[in-house]
Design a protein around this nucleic acid. Structure first.
Lengths: 236, 236
DNA sequence: GTGGCAGGTCTTGTATGTAAGCAGCGTCGA
DNA sequence: TCGACGCTGCTTACATACAAGACCTGCCAC
């Protein structure tokens, strides 16, 4: 019945749920019943449950034993933690940038920036390119593998950013900042690249903070309280 | 039959397995059959399987579908990745050290160093204190929560370190280095503290490198090849 | 002797059954 | 009217049954 896929059901379910949580398609507080999800996705509870456990470890889902599982609130502390981590890692990588850069990778980054400009009004597309760009910066210094750790830690940061960017009219400014960073790196001016990158990351974070002050309800502190059980889940 | 514990079976199994992997009690390459582990631990396959999945995400275990699960080899690349990450995070934290330190925390760190000196011949005890010390340094700057991410990423680094320290005669040198770091921090000399911390972390890493050159077989690159199935598991 | 095939046994992946607990709501009593 | 109590339906946690594939071993043919 199910096609012979190399990717296990669990992997598919995990990635599907993760994407929906990060894109806020499954909003904070949404109920994630194992039974409902299993029925919706056409699999048994097992892969769903295993996925929820993984998302729980990542902090994107909270599992309350015998009560229910819910998409976690966007936690301001976790957002700040992720900001600190990514800044530390990305800046530290610039200390290890080699004298001569991998020309192929530089070309890839330049092409990425072109696509960013084209996609500056398409939130999802832009986010995807933004991720690849920052990952690429790490790869320039040979620390590309550290990106996965950053990715795993910055779920709350990404959701907070999305909350803010829904009110923004275009990501042109970010593209400009990306350009500054890459130009400085290519010019061999590591110090300037560091400053530009730090400024860029801080600007993103400041936007989030502004959003938080405007709409604090979106950032409800994620204490141990159990959300109301009513199904908020938006699930087709 | 089983006592009403707040900690779920899965949590207990996960932490048990993780500890045994990190302490090399379960050596790299050891077979981790879900059935065997379930029988040994007196639980069903479910919590064991869920734990193995989590350890797999952490990189400590490799799961080969329909073949078996095995403790992952100590991977030199992953060791280097973890080294980069922890250095980035710990050094970046020093940029945010406040003017006046939390005196309670400082006292705790000083007491920790006393215990380190007492335990400098007891590997496991020393490791525990070492972890708490570095975590404490992060807490000084208000970034204590970032430690969990570092912990989750540095499993390979910890195992590599253990491999090396089995051949060492005491951790007195590390205690001295810890003292230098803390003294510089307390004196408000952040720059010197950074230098000392970086030197300390690099020294640890150099030790690992030396071990790797002496005993490369312990660091077999962890490619996709399936280990022999014969049960290497040491399990009482 | 050697190569190849088949079967048995192991593995993980998935589905489902069972247990135990929390929450909400209605009802009953004061 | 209001509070307490129990029932009902939901949840996750755990156990178990089944499916499908990989590997090893031994036998058989050549």
């Amino acid at each position: 019945m199910r096609e012979a896929s190399n990717r296990s059901n669990r992997r598919v379910v995990y990635e599907t749920l993760r994407r929906k949580v990060l894109t806020l398609e499954l909003p904070p507080g949404a109920s994630l019943s194992e039974n409902e999800l299993a029925a919706s996705l056409g699999v048994s509870r097992t892969p769903v449950r295993e996925s929820l456990i993984l998302l729980g470890e990542e902090g994107l889902v909270r599992v309350f034993p015998k009560v229910g599982s819910f998409v976690s609130r966007v936690d301001a502390e976790r957002v700040a933690d992720a900001q600190f981590l990514r800044e530390a890692v990305e800046l530290a990588a610039f200390d290890d940038i080699p004298e001569t850069l991998d020309p192929e990778l530089v070309a890839e980054l330049r092409a990425n920036l072109e696509h960013q400009r084209e996609a500056r009004l398409d939130l999802e597309k832009f986010f995807e390119l933004d991720e690849a760009f920052h990952h690429g910066l790490l790869r320039l210094s040979g620390h590309g593998r550290a990106w996965s750790t950053v990715v795993a830690a910055k779920g709350h940061l990404d959701r907070a950013r999305r909350l803010g960017l829904h009110e923004t009219n275009g990501m042109g400014r970010f593209v400009d900042e990306h350009h500054s960073i890459l130009d400085a790196v290519v010019a061999g001016d590591t110090s300037s690249a560091r400053d530009s990158l730090r400024a860029h990351l801080r600007a993103v974070f400041d936007d989030i903070e502004k959003t938080r002050q405007r709409s604090p309800e979106l950032f409800a502190t994620d204490d141990g309280s159990v959300p109301v059980r009513r199904s908020i889940a938006v699930w087709e």
